[in-house]
Write a protein that binds this DNA or RNA. Structure first.
Length: 273
DNA sequence: AGCACCACCTGTGGGC
DNA sequence: TGCCCACAGGTGGTGC
């Protein structure tokens, strides 16, 4: 479900709502949502902690506490909902409830149960236990020079697979990758090493632009994505290729759907070379 | 290194 | 019209 723009939207909405709040003991409706530590240690350690601020790395939401760090990954269908009176908007798919001392609460819902929460002691553990294989944030930590350098190490990868690889750089998902490659007219099956300098610069610019647009529109709701208050994003109305099989591209050609990197991949066979 | 495939889950919509 | 199964904003593991 959520890619970088959706997680960033949630981060921006949530930060002013929950900064300064103090956790009371969590309610784990589905204990396996907690990846680590043990459910008992998670509950005990989180209780009494104060939220300082919220950051993000790729698709990971990082909730920094006065002692320790709470990390959330929503995977496909996870979503976070803040409730002033502490009541969840519904019981269905409710996996974890994180109540605060002021009676408000943060609720984690997840239909497909892929999402996970972690509680780590410090930055060191954040990187060794959670972000072990996660590359630099594509929006915040990769300038053009670094992008060129990273690409240089992965010349043989197909560009779609590479952009989806969170170890290469973190944040791009299936929707924004397709939109990005369409914007810069690059075929999803091109090998990274085949891109000219100009194409690489255009790709970099397209990544930045499509992610910025996604954030500006509050993310994309293709099926399930909801922001913190349960509202949908609006970037889906701006999608040029994703989910548009058979529809006309701006050039007039029909958008096609193929499988690449194991994912449904939409592109324009006329524009993208 | 890179890639294809499966597993993890539940719901649903496209196609027959 | 109804039913069914391929497929879904992700990732980790395996094996070639």
């Amino acid at each position: 479900m959520p890619e970088l723009p959706e997680v960033e939207t949630i981060r921006r909405e949530l930060e002013p709502l929950i900064s300064g709040k103090i956790f009371v003991r969590p309610v784990l409706h589905m204990p396996s949502t907690i990846e680590s530590p043990s459910v008992e240690e998670f509950s005990t350690t989180l209780t009494g902690r104060t939220i300082e601020n919220l950051t993000r790395r790729g698709k990971y939401l990082i909730i920094n506490l006065d002692r320790g760090i709470l990390v959330v990954h929503l995977r496909m269908t996870g979503n976070l909902s803040y409730s002033v009176n502490g009541q969840p908007r519904e019981e269905r798919f409710l996996r974890v409830s994180l109540p605060f001392t002021d009676e408000s609460a943060l609720h984690y819902f997840d239909m497909r149960r892929f999402g996970r929460l972690w509680l780590v002691a410090n930055r060191e553990e954040l990187h060794t236990k959670v972000l072990k294989r996660v590359g630099p944030d594509i929006l915040e930590e990769v300038d053009l020079e670094k992008f060129l350098k990273l690409l240089g190490k992965r010349q043989r990868s197909k560009i779609k697979a590479l952009l989806l690889d969170q170890g290469f750089a973190a944040g791009m998902g299936n929707i924004y990758t397709d939109e990005c490659l369409h914007r810069c007219n690059i075929h999803p099956r091109r090998q990274a090493g085949s891109l000219s300098r100009t194409e690489t610069e255009e790709l970099y610019a397209a990544i930045k632009a499509v992610l910025a647009d996604g954030i500006e529109y509050g993310g994309t709701t293709f099926r399930d994505y909801r922001n913190t208050s349960g509202a949908i994003g609006s970037f889906q109305s701006k999608l040029a290729v994703y989910g548009c099989k058979g529809e006309k591209c701006r050039c007039g050609a029909k958008i096609e759907k193929i499988t690449e990197a194991g994912r449904g991949t939409y592109y324009c066979p006329n524009c993208q070379k």
